[in-house]
Design a protein around this nucleic acid. Sequence first.
DNA 1: AATGAATGAGACTTCATTCAT
DNA 2: CATGAATGAAGTCTCATTCAT
Lengths: 189, 189, 189, 189
Amino acid sequence: MRDGTATKNKINRVAMELFAEKGVTETTTKDIAAGAEIAEGTIYRHYKSKDELVKKLFLSLYEEQGNYLRDIAATEKNIKQKIADMIARFCQLFAEDKALFTFLLLTQHGQLREVPDDMVTPVVVLRDLITRGQNAGAVKQGDPDLMAAMVLGVVVQPAVFHVYGRLTQDYKSFTQDLTEAAWGVLGLN
Amino acid sequence: MRDGTATKNKINRVAMELFAEKGVTETTTKDIAAGAEIAEGTIYRHYKSKDELVKKLFLSLYEEQGNYLRDIAATEKNIKQKIADMIARFCQLFAEDKALFTFLLLTQHGQLREVPDDMVTPVVVLRDLITRGQNAGAVKQGDPDLMAAMVLGVVVQPAVFHVYGRLTQDYKSFTQDLTEAAWGVLGLN
Amino acid sequence: MRDGTATKNKINRVAMELFAEKGVTETTTKDIAAGAEIAEGTIYRHYKSKDELVKKLFLSLYEEQGNYLRDIAATEKNIKQKIADMIARFCQLFAEDKALFTFLLLTQHGQLREVPDDMVTPVVVLRDLITRGQNAGAVKQGDPDLMAAMVLGVVVQPAVFHVYGRLTQDYKSFTQDLTEAAWGVLGLN
Amino acid sequence: MRDGTATKNKINRVAMELFAEKGVTETTTKDIAAGAEIAEGTIYRHYKSKDELVKKLFLSLYEEQGNYLRDIAATEKNIKQKIADMIARFCQLFAEDKALFTFLLLTQHGQLREVPDDMVTPVVVLRDLITRGQNAGAVKQGDPDLMAAMVLGVVVQPAVFHVYGRLTQDYKSFTQDLTEAAWGVLGLN
DNA sequence: AATGAATGAGACTTCATTCAT
DNA sequence: CATGAATGAAGTCTCATTCAT
């Protein structure tokens, strides 16, 4: 291949999966190279260091999730429906790409502090949506950051249980229950 | 202290704090020894390996939390009150010892698989309480594991936000809100 | 330039300057390529290896200096004047192209052993001039290699000081002093 | 051994010899460890990095030479004799420990800039001695830094020739010639 | 029980060199 | 002649663990 895009994509994918599987520190550059079927040195044509790989991977994927949610928040629907759509989208994503979620889950500690203030993150989108819902009188009063945290917890913690085998059903089957719980937390019933 | 109990306690405390601060892999045995003001080799008088230290520390602290919750679950109160007590207890703990929570938070991945089947963990206690509540007709129907996960998420995720500075108030001030949200998830209003 | 002469010259010049600035091992082929505004692979159209580049560069420049001195030695002037001319020439060169001198200075160790026996080097020219001066009775007796070394030291060491900032005046202003010192060493007063 | 002094000394000696023989970059930590008959990691109990090893080694040995010369400069003798003593001392040192000289010679480039301003170096001692000699009317006028450089060149450049095999006699046999040349440069005859 | 110098496996990274385009 | 992505050997350094004291 003339440009290295395919190689870089392969590195990204393999790295994400290995990080999700074993954790970042436990995954060696050798592992990544083997998984991507390239030489170890090749990683360094695309990233200055393993650290940079982790950070860029995390930030780009984290922001990508933020963008998805932002698009949902930007629709014409009412807030109740937007919350439902967001949760449906999360369940869909998790069912399709568990490694992506697990990677974000494992990597957040230590990477969250690297998030630029102006980045569109899932958390920020959710918090802003809640704030606007409160202003419109649809969502009950309360610290919007706290409410965002609780909603996030309702949706994410079952996914963690799923990752660790405590929940085994197809995650999409939880969509309805999660949505109703989130509505309850926000007083949207 | 002719026996090494004091030394071991110091190791445990220092290790937990360093693990919470920087993560397990990023904390070296040298760091721990320095923090505990002992020689590196001394750690190996008390633990066979760093891995064993991490595992024993995690399991004992995790079980300790389970025991607290079990004691609450064993009281004569009604389930609604028990949930409230558990959350109050968690908020208290988190406010008093953030490092302990952070340690458990960071370490769960990779340690959760080591938990013996018969151990009394917070998750098991909570799940069993929910099941009994459902049998008694107090808690609404639904997968008890899923419900336990959602309740846990409601309580724990705000703590994560607190650790990363997105929430800054004294955690105990959230007790009421968290409790009501948990009740809502369980249909206990 | 259908042939690569211009490219090769650019490589030579850039390489010399970088070698002088940071040392040979500390200069990467990537640095050279970047400085010469070519691709890394292009270097290998002109040189078999980095080693060959260093060696050829050193030898050609070193010999070039030898040739200059040989031309001076071949004139009709008396030895005293020839020494003066050589030193003047060195001061001129150093003032004009400090990088060239620094490159030769840094590279000599490790390259000096590669010099072919029959090459016209500054050292050989100087030594031969001294020998002839001794035969003609103009230069005082003594090991000609030792005397060549001392004369060289008198002229070169101040240049080293200049490179490292211990001497800061225009080097040409030292010409007279260096010449007289050299004469003194050779007993030419 | 209870303390690591012997090990550190061994590292220092072996490193100096290898650096002198092949150059710093060409000497690997593996080489040093093998030469000192220790594990590679052991080097890092005594030095934070290879760089630090090189720098500390250079600075301590360089300063040591400065101290020797300072002691000579501090005697009651006249300046002519002091110069003679210094040169004799240098010839003695070089004859006894060629590796030390070669190490200092090879390493000066890149280390000279690290020398603290207040360090007693051979160059500073020599320059100060010359300045005092000029004030006393014993040494002829002229930039003392330039004169120090020339004297240094007279003494050191033959040593370089010796290292590269152009001079082969016992270096101590040059003592008289070098001394007279240095005197000549300083106008001390 | 405690020490701390030493170990050695292995991680990350660099860089001269190759080769398909 | 020129490119630049890829290689892989080799280097520096870290760190959990051991063992003589």
